[in-house]
Nucleic acid binder design. Structure first.
Lengths: 120, 120
DNA sequence: TGCAATACCCACCAGGAGGTAAGTATGACC
DNA sequence: GGTCATACTTACCTCCTGGTGGGTATTGCA
């Protein structure tokens, strides 16, 4: 679970780590996914569809839904439907989504450092 | 530089982190990039083009070059050309590439956990 | 009657990512 | 003269991602 494994010399193991990781990264690919994830982390509570739409500048509905559906399928976010009119749907991070915390944190740090290095 | 920032409540800050991070993630997107990065980490030394090609199962030359060029452009890998015949080119992680270590580690951990959760 | 609010779905399109197969340049070696 | 190795480049093709602009269902309210 630490770097003792993934930096090892065994080429077989490297392939295993590399393929698992690229497979996992593919779950995060998509123009709006990390934005959604970060918003859900920051909110610390479920967010409604329209709330996400409002918070994420530049998404349209189709894109937001598409990305949410993929995140849901991949087990990152959960969907809670309230049978009301007008409809109400809430999105949350699942356990697996919350487990992304360290990765997101490291990526945020790196992104920050990168911005600095490239000159604001 | 820690989670005290990116999980804050300030919506302005959230947008800054989210956009910086999605921008940074876009640098890692591409079917072979993390695989390349992990191989370079694991090798602990520069790798020649043909060596990368040999280690990464399934890439073809065009894809490998394309991804290496993009990683180079984004400042993740460095390229060292030796004026020989037959040609010799070595690829290394730059400082910014090495700085990806914690992110890669966290992602590897998550990918591992995910595999377990999905039933290997 | 008709409009507002919410959370979607559908048809369609452009551009780019990914992939295959072939070609290029150079000098050494046989 | 022909082949080999290395690190590419090029032409061409397919499929997916992202995006636009509409439509749908339900009920309350004026």
């Amino acid at each position: 679970m630490t770097d003792r494994d993934w930096r090892c010399e065994d080429p077989e193991q490297q392939l295993v780590w590399a393929s698992a990781t690229s497979e996992a990264l593919r779950v995060l690919e998509g123009k709006w996914k990390i934005v959604i994830i970060i918003q859900l982390f920051a909110a610390k509570s479920p967010l409604r569809f329209s709330e996400l739409e409002r918070r994420i500048e530049g998404v349209n509905q189709k894109m937001l839904i598409q990305q949410l559906r993929q995140l849901e399928k991949d087990g990152i976010v959960g969907r809670m439907v309230y049978p009301q009119v007008p409809p109400k749907v809430e999105y949350t991070l699942t356990e697996m989504g919350i487990a992304l915390g360290p990765s997101v944190e490291a990526l945020v740090d790196w992104a920050f450092m990168r911005r600095e290095a490239l000159g604001h």
